[in-house]
Amino acid sequence: VTLFVALYDYEARTEDDLSAHKGEKFQILNSSEGDWWEARSLTTGETGYIPSNYVAPV
């Protein structure tokens, strides 16, 4: 399991995006899409895309 933590708040801009709150942890499901990674929030269980530069490894 690849875990990352949000460094900043991010507000989803499309229905495919996933909002993130600073300190929230995510499981990365797919990081092969360049700057946008598919992730699952460990807080809400929701999945979507987050900007890779907004997260760091735990």
Rank of each mutant, 00 (worst) to 15 (best):
Val5Pro: 00
Glu11Phe: 11
Asn30Tyr: 07
Asp17Phe: 14
Lys22Ile: 10
Ile28Pro: 01
Leu3Gln: 07
Leu42Val: 10
Leu29Asn: 04
Val58Arg: 00
Ala6Arg: 00
Tyr8Asp: 07
Leu7Thr: 04
Lys22Gln: 09
Tyr8Gly: 05
Val55Glu: 01
Glu24Leu: 02
Thr47His: 07
Glu11Ala: 10
Phe26Val: 04
Trp37His: 03
Leu42Gln: 08
Val58Pro: 02
Thr47Asn: 04
Glu24Met: 03
Lys22Pro: 05
Ser52Met: 09
Ala12Lys: 09
Arg13Met: 11
Leu7Ala: 03
Tyr49Gly: 03
Ala6Trp: 02
Arg40Leu: 13
Pro51Ala: 05
Gly23Glu: 03
Tyr8Cys: 14
Pro51Gln: 06
Ser19Ala: 07
Arg13Tyr: 07
His21Met: 11
Ala20Gly: 03
Thr44Cys: 04
Ala12Leu: 03
Asp9Arg: 03
Gln27Pro: 02
Glu24Cys: 06
Tyr54His: 09
Val55Ile: 13
Tyr49Gln: 07
Ser41Asp: 04
Ala56Gly: 08
Pro57Asp: 04
Thr44Tyr: 03
Ile50Gln: 01
Ser32Ile: 11
Leu7Pro: 00
Ala12Met: 04
Tyr49Phe: 12
Asp35Gly: 11
Val55Phe: 14
His21Cys: 12
Pro51Trp: 09
Ala12Arg: 08
Gly45Asp: 05
Asn30Thr: 08
Asn30Trp: 07
Val58Met: 11
Val5Asp: 00
Ala6Leu: 06
Glu33Ile: 12
Ser32Ala: 11
Arg40Asn: 05
Ile28Lys: 03
Leu18Thr: 01
Ala56Tyr: 09
Asp9Met: 05
Gln27Asn: 06
Pro57Arg: 05
Thr47Pro: 00
Gly48Pro: 00
Thr43Ala: 12
Tyr8Met: 11
Thr43Met: 11
Asp16Arg: 15
Glu15Asn: 12
Pro57Val: 08
Val5Trp: 06
Ala39Arg: 00
Pro51Lys: 07
Val58Ile: 13
Ala12Asp: 02
Leu7His: 02
Gly34Arg: 12
Ile28Asp: 01
Leu7Lys: 04
Glu33Ala: 13
Asn30Met: 07
Asp16Cys: 15
Pro51Val: 03
Phe4His: 06
Val5Arg: 00
Tyr10Glu: 01
Ser41Gln: 03
Leu7Asn: 02
Thr2Ser: 11
Asn53Glu: 10
Glu11Val: 14
Ala56Trp: 09
Gly45Tyr: 05
Ile50Lys: 02
Ala56Asp: 04
Ala56Cys: 12
Leu7Val: 08
Glu46Met: 14
Ser19His: 08
Leu42Met: 13
Pro57Trp: 05
Pro57Tyr: 05
Trp36Asp: 04
Arg40Ala: 06
Gln27Trp: 15
Leu29Trp: 06
Glu24Ala: 00
Trp37Gly: 00
Lys25Thr: 12
Leu42His: 05
Glu33Gln: 14
Tyr54Trp: 08
Ala39Pro: 00
Lys25Arg: 12
Val5Ala: 05
Phe4Glu: 00
Gly45Pro: 00
Leu3His: 09
His21Asn: 07
Tyr10Asn: 01
Lys25Tyr: 15
